[in-house]
């Protein structure tokens, strides 16, 4: 059975907007963020994204798990890119103020270097990824779970795809619940995920006691859902009715217009080279 996201009904400015308008705005914003390289603009985006979370009155307790996964992953990726000097070569050609270090790791000598360009590139990446994560977070945490299907239908998906997307959306927290149950079942058999050792291949093999039951359970669960839907005439008529209704109001149109305008402006500015990679070399 599918579990819902931890959604709380709150009468906030974010929740009062039509979910279709919110999804369109978020998509426009994410594409715009991807197009920007200028750290100054990206910092503004990050501030705006965090502000929307604040406006939606999401609490740290609700979002904690999400950020505990996202922050280390983003930090790791950004640090790795910065230290290896890979990535961003298309954004800058010259390097200034190189710091060079020499470390010995596993008997090998490493000499990572850091330039001001690499530092700013890392900061841009960091802001970009966090902004996108924060905006995406708004979808599961502020859209009423009963509205997923009709929201995606309203965004132009067919009835079948809209229902499928609704189910897929709720599959994520369901997987989380199954993971917790399987982890408990294996911990009761002395399995300790924190003590796993060995090389990379061995570590993946060590995860089999978690991955296999979860995967098999998900496949069997999907078959059950298919039977249950067949028995209630799913997909047998060319059209279906949606009991949940959504109505666009003026502010929703305004939100969509703002989203589209921002995206178009970003494309134009990028063409003009205005929001390209920025390093404050003039200050140095």
């Amino acid at each position: 059975m599918l579990v819902n996201w931890n959604y709380k009904e709150r009468n906030t400015i974010v929740q009062r907007l039509d979910p279709r308008a919110r999804v369109i705005f978020i998509l426009c914003a994410i594409v715009a963020i991807i197009l920007v390289w200028d750290l100054r603009v990206l910092v503004l985006w990050l501030a705006f994204s965090l502000l929307t979370l604040r406006l939606a009155r999401l609490t740290w307790a609700e979002m904690r798990r999400f950020w505990l996964v996202v922050l280390p992953v983003v930090t790791f990726l950004v640090t790795l890119t910065a230290l290896t000097g890979r990535g961003g070569e298309e954004a800058y050609r010259e390097r200034h103020l190189n710091w060079q270090a020499t470390w010995t790791l596993f008997g090998r000598s490493l000499s990572p270097s850091l330039s001001i360009e690499q530092l700013f590139f890392a900061a841009s990446q960091f802001s970009r990824m966090l902004s996108m994560a924060a905006l995406s977070l708004l979808i599961p945490f502020t859209i009423h779970p009963a509205q997923y299907g009709v929201t995606f239908k309203g965004l132009g998906l067919s009835d079948k795809f809209a229902v499928a997307t609704d189910l897929a959306f709720r599959f994520v927290p369901t997987l989380g619940r199954d993971f917790a149950t399987v982890l408990d079942a294996q911990r009761a058999r002395g399995y300790e995920v924190e003590r796993l050792g060995g090389g990379l291949v061995q570590q993946v093999r060590n995860l089999a006691p978690l991955i296999i039951p979860i995967t098999i359970g998900a496949i069997l669960g999907a078959e059950d859902i298919i039977d249950a839907m067949d028995l209630r005439a799913f997909g047998t008529r060319p059209k279906r009715t949606w009991v949940t209704q959504l109505v666009y109001r003026r502010k929703d149109y305004v939100l969509i217009a703002v989203g589209v305008t921002i995206l178009v402006l970003t494309i134009i500015l990028r063409r003009l080279g205005i929001i390209a990679f920025w390093v404050p070399l003039g200050w140095l």
């Binding site: 059975m1 059950d224 859902i225 009715t241 949606w242 009991v243």
Partner: peptide, 28 residues
């Protein structure tokens, strides 16, 4: 079905009970 957990597809009771009727395209 034997296990209601395997039968329920709707996120809310209203949506669950309405699911079959929605598929039959009855008026709202």
């Amino acid at each position: 079905l034997q296990d209601p957990e395997k039968q329920i597809v709707g996120a809310y009771v209203l949506n669950e009970v309405a699911f079959g009727l929605e598929n039959l395209a009855l008026p709202r």
